[in-house]
C-alpha cells in the first residue's frame, strides 16, 4: 500500500481509491469492516485528518457506512457502485490520454485498434 506524495492526486483521494481497489478485488467484502482511520493513518504514516477525509469521501458516495461504536463497513452493492463510477470515468481518465498520445506518435486509428485487440487477448 503505497502513497505517492508528489502525485498530482491529493493523498485523501489516493486513500479512497486504494480502498475502492480493495473492495473491487475482494480484499474487502461487502458488509465487512475496513481499517479504521487510526489504522490507515498509522499504516500509511499520514495525518488522521487526511485519512478521515478519504473515508468521508467514500461515505458520501455510499461506498462505506459507519456502524456506531464499531467502525466503518463496506456497503452492500459497493463493488457495483464503484465499477459503474469507474466505467463512467474510464473515457476521461484513460481513453483521452491514449488517443492523445497515439496522435502525438502519429498512430492511425486502425493501428490503435489492433493494439487494443492485442491487449484483450494478452
Amino acid at each position: 500500500m503505497e502513497i505517492r506524495f508528489e502525485d498530482e492526486k491529493p493523498i485523501f483521494l489516493q486513500i479512497a481509491e486504494q480502498i475502492e481497489d480493495g473492495i473491487l478485488s475482494g480484499a474487502f467484502c461487502e458488509e465487512t469492516q475496513i481499517p479504521s482511520t487510526t489504522e490507515i493513518s498509522v499504516g500509511y504514516k499520514i495525518n488522521p485528518a487526511t485519512a478521515l477525509k478519504g473515508i468521508n469521501l467514500l461515505v458520501d458516495s455510499g461506498i462505506v457506512y459507519k456502524k456506531r461504536g464499531v467502525g466503518m463497513f463496506v456497503a452492500s452493492g459497493a463493488a457495483k457502485k464503484i465499477m459503474e463510477k469507474r466505467r463512467k470515468e474510464f473515457y476521461q481518465k484513460y481513453i483521452i490520454k491514449v488517443t492523445g498520445e497515439a496522435k502525438k506518435l502519429q498512430l492511425t486509428q486502425k493501428e490503435l485498434t489492433e493494439m487494443i485487440e492485442r491487449g484483450y487477448k494478452g
Partner: peptide, 14 residues
C-alpha cells in the same frame, strides 16, 4: 524513525 511516526500517529489518534 518509522516507529516514531507510527507511534506518534497512534498516540495522537487515541
Amino acid at each position: 524513525r518509522d516507529m516514531f511516526y507510527k507511534i506518534l500517529l497512534e498516540k495522537y489518534s487515541q
